[in-house]
Amino acid sequence: MMGVNRRDFLRIAGLTAAIGMGGKTAFDLLWPGQLDAAEGGVEGWWKSKTPENPLFPGDMAPGNEVPNPAELTAKRWGMALDMRKFTAATRAAVVKACNQVHNVPAIPGNQNIKWIWETSFEHAFPDLAQEYMDNEVHDLPFLVLCNHCDNPPCVRVCPTKATFRRADGIVMMDMHRCIGCRFCMAACPFGSRSFNFADPRKFFPDGKEPNPTYPTRTKGVVEKCTFCTERLAKGELPACVEVSGGAMLFGDMADSGSPVRQALRTRYAIRRKNELGTAPQVYYLI
């Protein structure tokens, strides 16, 4: 029920473009089309429904979305990574799938964009690392991504509700509302967010995005993993889960029969920086 499908996406896009612009300006005249890709054909924003429920900032208001009977829904989405099942090939496939599906550009240097990436145990779990660890776990590269925290500080600090938590727990971004203040990046204790320092389209090989059906971003906005809301809306699992060969599980944390909950019942699992109380919804099965 909650998916932001393409139509919705464009509608919200146009809506926020209209809000964000507020008329022609000197900049607009100097750089035509620089403001937003999705201008034009905009209904009066004051007439259209607001995209979120004012009582619960960030939750999509019911009735705003076009229902799709095949859509995957949950009370609260969660993910588990089965560290025993990962191989180098799986990890590479997972990262590649995500980058391709979401047009994540490969930007050299430290102004790069990362949705899901590989890091060592010490970096993923700086508070759990110790000198005399199980060698196998210690040497294992871990995949990290946005944890879709149940108590997300990024949502708390965003001054425009461009980062919001959907009713199904997914922490989402409205790229057309984000002002690029990067407060959310300071607030995220997991380094899960990336900022488009430059126009990401410049970095696609031969200048074309790998996946024309997924929107590319503009410079000046923040982005991150979305748990593939666009795929859930079509009834598909997240791209990473699909290519992980069973190493990644995805399901409803509120449903005791879901694959994630079943795995968590029998396997020891850790979460990143549990002590900060953000309640990450990505679990690592050791």
Partner: peptide
């Protein structure tokens, strides 16, 4: 300095159009 720091300065007014009292940046404004 706030304005030159923004990635999308033309959308500055979003802070007022979508007032978000849980954001400290809103109160700072």
């Amino acid at each position: 300095f706030i304005i030159v720091d923004l990635g999308r300065p033309m959308r500055l007014m979003n802070v007022l159009l979508h007032p978000t009292p849980n954001s400290i940046l809103f109160w700072d404004m």
